[in-house]
Nucleic acid binder design. Structure first.
Lengths: 170, 170
DNA sequence: ACAGCCATGTAACTTGTTACATGATTTT
DNA sequence: AAAATCATGTAACAAGTTACATGGCTGT
């Protein structure tokens, strides 16, 4: 429910129209997570259905603006004050893949690890380059840093897996 | 598509029935990602629809087994040999939350960070305890380690955010 | 004229998820 | 006898995602 809440947060500053939400969402998270414009409208409809936002007619240039409701503000406040729990994080595809490769004996685990590490390393290089070229605001910077931290953690974990597997084989 | 492929991997060892897939999936990933039994059957139906598996009648105890098809094996091989790309990772709710909190001026970012750090720290303690008590196999061990690595990275990132924000305010 | 951005929206689809219904077998 | 586990499945829904249709406005 990240997109719902993200859009709700943007709407809490004041009325917004669909296209604007897309732009502001992407501006806040950098180019990291593009947001399909179609999804903005479907999400707005669903939030309206759930009483979190209200259509506020058209602005001076005829654009269809939405306003956050009181229930929407409560939901948003709840979102900000409740930490993300371990249990509601999405399943990690890479981890499942490696677990399955290890469990099955006939899959070449080392090959999977090497392939992934190459890809992650390349991603890390791109990220570092993006980091150097960065001119934008605080939010975008922290989002990019998060991606870097995660990629580094993944590298460390892959190294760890390799070491554990080598040790077990001996 | 982690569950699909995970189940496909299990089916590549030989025919399996639904309940068995649930058990083996949970055994491989430890207690980390429980798999709802209902989902096993819906996923099996969808995989059958997509030609990845075939119903293989009933086994000697009358259980409805499924068999992987040639297309299924190809799909699985592609899964193992293709690294997980940066772009197809799910959006991180915490990162979006913090980005939105930073972008909006009226949200107390520091409070959000502190709340999350407390929760993550507690999770980390539970994980360390689970790690000590661990008796099971290689796959489960690596899955648990991954969770720990990620939680640690999150803590570091939260510290980093706090530092950057403090520095900016000065 | 044409490309590209601004702007709105709908239809159809995907995975993942849960609630429910049903019954057999096993353990306590 | 009761509780737990084994076992299968369906119905309904959620969020996210994409493809498509439509049109105005702007810059080259």
């Amino acid at each position: 429910m990240s997109i719902r809440h993200g859009m709700l947060a943007l709407l809490s500053w004041g009325p917004r129209y669909g296209y604007q939400l897309k732009q502001e969402f992407e501006a806040s998270t950098g180019a990291t997570w593009p947001l399909n414009i179609g999804q903005v409208y479907t999400t707005l409809s669903r939030m309206e259905r759930d009483g979190l936002v209200e259509p506020g007619g058209a602005d001076d240039q005829g654009r269809a603006v939405y306003t956050i409701t009181e229930a929407g503000r409560e939901e948003l406040e709840r979102w900000f004050s409740t930490p993300v729990d371990q249990s509601d994080r999405p399943r990690d595809e890479l981890v499942i893949k490696l677990a399955m490769a290890v469990a099955a004996q006939d899959v070449d685990v080392a090959r999977v690890i090497v392939a992934q590490r190459t890809a992650t390393m390349r991603a890390l290089q791109d990220l570092t380059r993006a980091k150097r070229a960065q001119t934008d605001g605080l939010a975008q910077r922290l989002v990019l840093d998060s991606t870097i931290f995660k990629a580094e953690a993944e590298q460390r974990w892959l190294d760890h897996c390799e070491a554990v597997l080598k040790e077990k084989k001996a």
